[in-house]
Protein backbone atom coordinates (compact mmCIF):
# COMPACT_ATOMS: atom_id res chain seq x y z
CA UNK A 1 0.00 0.00 0.00
CA UNK A 2 2.72 2.42 1.03
CA UNK A 3 4.81 1.49 -2.02
CA UNK A 4 1.83 2.23 -4.26
CA UNK A 5 1.35 5.60 -2.61
CA UNK A 6 4.98 6.50 -3.21
CA UNK A 7 4.64 5.95 -6.93
CA UNK A 8 1.16 7.49 -7.23
CA UNK A 9 2.43 11.03 -7.97
CA UNK A 10 4.56 9.76 -10.86
CA UNK A 11 1.65 7.72 -12.22
CA UNK A 12 -0.64 10.75 -11.95
CA UNK A 13 1.91 12.91 -13.73
CA UNK A 14 2.30 10.31 -16.50
CA UNK A 15 -1.47 10.45 -16.98
CA UNK A 16 -1.49 14.25 -17.22
CA UNK A 17 1.53 14.13 -19.53
CA UNK A 18 -0.22 11.73 -21.89
CA UNK A 19 -3.36 13.82 -21.83
CA UNK A 20 -1.54 17.05 -22.59
CA UNK A 21 0.63 15.43 -25.25
CA UNK A 22 -2.57 14.15 -26.86
CA UNK A 23 -4.04 17.64 -26.80
CA UNK A 24 -0.88 19.04 -28.33
CA UNK A 25 -0.70 16.49 -31.15
CA UNK A 26 -4.38 16.77 -32.01
CA UNK A 27 -5.37 20.42 -31.46
CA UNK A 28 -8.92 21.11 -30.44
CA UNK A 29 -11.50 21.68 -33.14
CA UNK A 30 -12.99 24.94 -31.95
CA UNK A 31 -15.51 25.24 -34.79
CA UNK A 32 -19.18 24.82 -34.00
CA UNK A 33 -20.58 22.28 -36.44
CA UNK A 34 -24.20 22.34 -37.41
CA UNK A 35 -26.35 19.44 -36.33
CA UNK A 36 -28.31 19.91 -39.56
CA UNK A 37 -25.65 18.38 -41.83
CA UNK A 38 -27.14 15.24 -43.39
CA UNK A 39 -30.69 16.46 -42.83
CA UNK A 40 -33.11 18.30 -45.15
CA UNK A 41 -32.96 22.09 -45.09
CA UNK A 42 -35.30 23.23 -42.26
CA UNK A 43 -38.52 24.97 -43.22
CA UNK A 44 -37.53 28.53 -44.05
CA UNK A 45 -39.69 31.23 -45.55
CA UNK A 46 -37.72 34.45 -45.83
CA UNK A 47 -38.88 37.59 -47.55
CA UNK A 48 -36.74 38.98 -50.34
CA UNK A 49 -34.25 41.51 -49.03
CA UNK A 50 -33.92 43.26 -52.40
CA UNK A 51 -36.78 44.02 -54.77
CA UNK A 52 -34.71 42.62 -57.66
CA UNK A 53 -34.22 39.10 -56.29
CA UNK A 54 -36.54 36.47 -54.83
CA UNK A 55 -36.35 35.51 -51.14
CA UNK A 56 -35.73 32.04 -49.79
CA UNK A 57 -38.34 29.32 -49.48
CA UNK A 58 -36.83 25.99 -48.46
CA UNK A 59 -39.29 24.13 -50.72
CA UNK A 60 -37.65 25.87 -53.69
CA UNK A 61 -34.11 24.78 -52.77
CA UNK A 62 -34.40 21.53 -54.76
CA UNK A 63 -33.82 20.21 -58.24
CA UNK A 64 -30.10 20.80 -58.44
CA UNK A 65 -27.21 21.04 -56.02
CA UNK A 66 -26.50 24.54 -54.77
CA UNK A 67 -24.77 26.64 -52.16
CA UNK A 68 -26.56 28.52 -49.41
CA UNK A 69 -24.30 31.33 -48.26
CA UNK A 70 -24.87 32.93 -44.85
CA UNK A 71 -23.42 36.45 -45.02
CA UNK A 72 -23.79 40.06 -43.95
CA UNK A 73 -22.72 43.38 -45.40
CA UNK A 74 -21.08 44.24 -42.06
CA UNK A 75 -18.85 41.17 -42.11
CA UNK A 76 -15.24 41.70 -43.14
CA UNK A 77 -14.38 38.05 -44.06
CA UNK A 78 -17.45 38.11 -46.33
CA UNK A 79 -15.65 40.74 -48.44
CA UNK A 80 -12.60 38.46 -48.62
CA UNK A 81 -14.85 35.60 -49.68
CA UNK A 82 -16.70 37.51 -52.43
CA UNK A 83 -14.23 36.82 -55.32
CA UNK A 84 -14.38 33.07 -54.62
CA UNK A 85 -18.17 33.11 -54.71
CA UNK A 86 -18.02 34.92 -58.06
CA UNK A 87 -15.70 32.20 -59.39
CA UNK A 88 -18.10 29.51 -58.21
CA UNK A 89 -20.94 31.32 -59.93
CA UNK A 90 -18.88 31.45 -63.15
CA UNK A 91 -18.39 27.69 -62.81
CA UNK A 92 -22.17 27.39 -63.02
CA UNK A 93 -23.04 26.97 -59.36
CA UNK A 94 -26.26 28.48 -58.11
CA UNK A 95 -25.61 30.44 -54.92
CA UNK A 96 -28.46 31.50 -52.70
CA UNK A 97 -27.92 33.65 -49.68
CA UNK A 98 -29.26 34.62 -46.30
CA UNK A 99 -28.41 38.15 -45.18
CA UNK A 100 -28.12 38.30 -41.40
CA UNK A 101 -29.36 41.40 -39.53
CA UNK A 102 -28.96 43.61 -42.56
CA UNK A 103 -30.66 46.39 -44.51
CA UNK A 104 -31.42 46.55 -48.26
CA UNK A 105 -29.31 49.72 -48.68
CA UNK A 106 -26.23 48.23 -47.03
CA UNK A 107 -26.50 44.95 -48.99
CA UNK A 108 -27.02 46.86 -52.23
CA UNK A 109 -23.82 48.83 -51.57
CA UNK A 110 -21.96 45.64 -50.54
CA UNK A 111 -22.92 43.86 -53.79
CA UNK A 112 -22.06 46.91 -55.90
CA UNK A 113 -18.59 47.00 -54.37
CA UNK A 114 -17.78 43.28 -54.14
CA UNK A 115 -19.81 41.76 -56.97
CA UNK A 116 -23.13 39.91 -56.86
CA UNK A 117 -22.96 36.10 -57.04
CA UNK A 118 -26.44 35.51 -55.60
CA UNK A 119 -29.58 34.13 -57.28
CA UNK A 120 -31.76 34.66 -54.19
CA UNK A 121 -31.29 36.65 -51.01
CA UNK A 122 -33.48 35.93 -48.00
CA UNK A 123 -33.88 38.56 -45.29
CA UNK A 124 -33.09 37.27 -41.78
CA UNK A 125 -33.47 40.41 -39.65
CA UNK A 126 -33.40 38.57 -36.30
CA UNK A 127 -30.99 35.72 -37.07
CA UNK A 128 -33.74 33.10 -36.59
CA UNK A 129 -33.11 31.41 -39.95
CA UNK A 130 -29.40 31.30 -39.14
CA UNK A 131 -30.12 29.50 -35.88
CA UNK A 132 -32.47 27.08 -37.65
CA UNK A 133 -29.60 26.16 -39.98
CA UNK A 134 -27.25 25.64 -37.06
CA UNK A 135 -24.91 28.36 -38.23
CA UNK A 136 -23.02 30.23 -35.53
CA UNK A 137 -21.41 33.03 -37.50
CA UNK A 138 -20.76 34.68 -40.84
CA UNK A 139 -19.66 33.75 -43.38
CA UNK A 140 -20.78 30.15 -43.54
CA UNK A 141 -21.78 28.19 -46.60
CA UNK A 142 -24.06 25.14 -46.72
CA UNK A 143 -23.82 22.65 -49.59
CA UNK A 144 -27.26 21.38 -50.55
CA UNK A 145 -27.93 18.41 -52.84
CA UNK A 146 -30.67 18.12 -55.47
CA UNK A 147 -33.07 16.61 -52.91
CA UNK A 148 -32.77 19.68 -50.68
CA UNK A 149 -30.58 17.94 -48.09
CA UNK A 150 -27.64 19.69 -46.42
CA UNK A 151 -24.59 17.63 -47.34
CA UNK A 152 -21.84 19.82 -45.92
CA UNK A 153 -21.10 23.02 -44.05
CA UNK A 154 -18.15 25.31 -44.77
CA UNK A 155 -17.30 27.43 -41.71
CA UNK A 156 -15.51 30.72 -42.34
CA UNK A 157 -14.67 32.35 -45.66
CA UNK A 158 -14.18 30.18 -48.74
CA UNK A 159 -10.55 30.44 -49.87
CA UNK A 160 -9.35 30.00 -53.46
CA UNK A 161 -8.01 26.51 -52.73
CA UNK A 162 -11.36 25.38 -51.28
CA UNK A 163 -13.10 25.82 -54.66
CA UNK A 164 -12.15 22.48 -56.34
CA UNK A 165 -13.35 20.46 -53.34
CA UNK A 166 -16.64 22.36 -53.22
CA UNK A 167 -17.19 21.86 -56.96
CA UNK A 168 -16.41 18.15 -56.63
CA UNK A 169 -18.86 17.72 -53.76
CA UNK A 170 -21.62 19.52 -55.67
CA UNK A 171 -20.88 17.38 -58.74
CA UNK A 172 -21.13 14.22 -56.65
CA UNK A 173 -24.44 15.38 -55.20
CA UNK A 174 -26.17 15.48 -58.58
Amino acid sequence: MKRLLIWAPLALFALVFALVAGGLIKPADRKIHSAMVGKPVPALAMKPLLATKPGIDSAALKGKPRLLNVFASWCIPCIAEAPQLLKLKQAGVEIDAIAIRDTPEAVQAFLARNGDPYARIGDDPTGKAQIALGSSGVPETFLIDDQGRIIDQHIGDIRADDIPAILAKLEAAK
Binding site: I6, W7, P9, L10, F13, A14, F17
Partner: peptide
Protein backbone atom coordinates in the same frame (compact mmCIF):
# COMPACT_ATOMS: atom_id res chain seq x y z
CA UNK B 1 12.27 17.29 -14.94
CA UNK B 2 8.95 16.57 -13.24
CA UNK B 3 8.99 12.92 -14.24
CA UNK B 4 12.61 12.64 -13.13
CA UNK B 5 11.98 14.29 -9.77
CA UNK B 6 8.91 12.16 -9.08
CA UNK B 7 10.79 9.01 -10.05
CA UNK B 8 13.61 10.03 -7.73
CA UNK B 9 11.01 10.62 -5.03
CA UNK B 10 9.60 7.13 -5.57
Amino acid sequence: YIGGALALFG
